[in-house]
Design a protein around this nucleic acid. Structure first.
Lengths: 213, 213
DNA sequence: CTTTGTATTAACAATTTTGTTAAACATTGT
DNA sequence: ACAATGTTTAACAAAATTGTTAATACAAAG
């Protein structure tokens, strides 16, 4: 009668499936993923997978939910920093965001693909983060305007800035497999390249917002 | 005995399938695409589809080939301009590239997804464009270095510059469905937003390469 | 030690999807 | 007219994939 009878074991099985599913969905997308393949990777029969998660759909939602909130969080927390100057907060935010994407390089493409193929499903999700985004944007824009008036930086629309930062940071990883074979030695050492790219992105944005004299 | 008996009709059928297939593959990817759906959209029986293209795979390759060469071409021609100064060539190239992506907004994601899911297949394709890229890069880098020595612009690695431009231009469209609902009125008018974004991308890169005094 | 709910397996069912085939149909050159 | 070749249809076959079920094992509680 105890639901948690064998909690360790159960968590193991369920967790094994979730881990395998995460990898399968992130690398192959919903359509390319196979429940049999997930079960095989997890080392369970595919009936077990259906026992725990009923349908492929439900298993997928579990993965999507965790990845989405992580993604949204990363983009927002990077710029909510404490009592630094706005310019330094932006500089630090770019780096933080870059590092997050570097540690979850498949996530952006996964999220983008998923939203494109089933946009209607994410209305609820959007509503949940909308207010947070609005307030972050308002604060950021206010600080930018204030700093601009003091001549510390260029006046710029915070949303444009946001898009530019995400573009530079995310595209690096999204297009990595596409560019790597074309760039010869330039991207051969991934770590070296990513460090240079990180610095380049920061430099690009810093110059964009630097006050013109 | 004439293979081209009813050439108009045949081209119509074959072309109808190709057009429908292009749309299906670009919007749903290989795994999400259904040959029955393609046939239905094209207004032919699904046996017809197999008659003309034998397999889903072969039909897909027809689409991929055309899209890939277009994509590669766009990235390369944008910067091969005539006798302008290098700075003006770059400025113009960003705009040209942006406009190309604007007219083919689904292509980058399609190409990236395809390369990620079957990288091994594109070795031949890469070899074909490798030499062109190498020569474009060499010329661009040489012109940049010369201009930098004359103090007309900042010295910068041409490949880094290339990646930044592609990031800014492509990400705008790749992430459009993701950002649009989050940005409120900002992206409501697509045309207005894209024009502003185009200008912003040019401005960002121009500031990046502007000579520091 | 029986009951009860959960975990597990193996076999199977249902559906979807791709691909084939044989026969009917059409067109054109001779 | 008719042979030859390409086109089209409808029905079918094969495979893959998701999902179900019935039987059984197991662990814990009473």
């Amino acid at each position: 009668m105890d639901k948690n009878t064998d909690n360790i074991e159960k968590q193991n099985k369920e967790q094994l499936i979730l881990t395998a599913a995460e990898h399968e969905f992130l690398t192959k997308g919903y359509d390319g993923a196979r429940t049999t393949s997930i079960a095989k990777t997890a080392g369970v029969t595919h009936a077990m997978l259906h026992y725990y998660f009923r349908t492929k759909e439900q298993l997928f939602e579990r993965i999507v939910d965790s990845k989405f909130s992580l993604m949204a969080q990363s983009m927002l927390t990077a710029f909510g920093n404490p009592n630094q100057s706005i310019v330094e907060r932006i500089r630090g935010g770019i780096g933080l965001h870059f590092d997050f994407v570097a540690q979850n390089p498949q996530m952006p493409l996964f999220v983008i693909n998923e939203i494109i193929s089933r946009p209607e499903r994410y209305d609820i999700l959007y509503n949940r983060v909308q207010s947070v985004i609005d307030s972050i944007y308002a604060n950021l824009q206010r600080d930018i305007d204030l700093a601009a008036e003091r001549g510390e930086m260029e006046r710029i629309d915070a949303r444009m800035l946001f898009i530019s930062i995400m573009s530079l940071n995310i595209f690096t990883f999204v297009a990595y497999p596409f560019m790597e074979p074309l760039m010869g030695d330039f991207m051969a050492n991934r770590k070296v390249f990513l460090e240079a790219r990180r610095a380049e992105n920061i430099e690009t944005i810093m110059r964009r917002i630097k006050a013109q004299q």
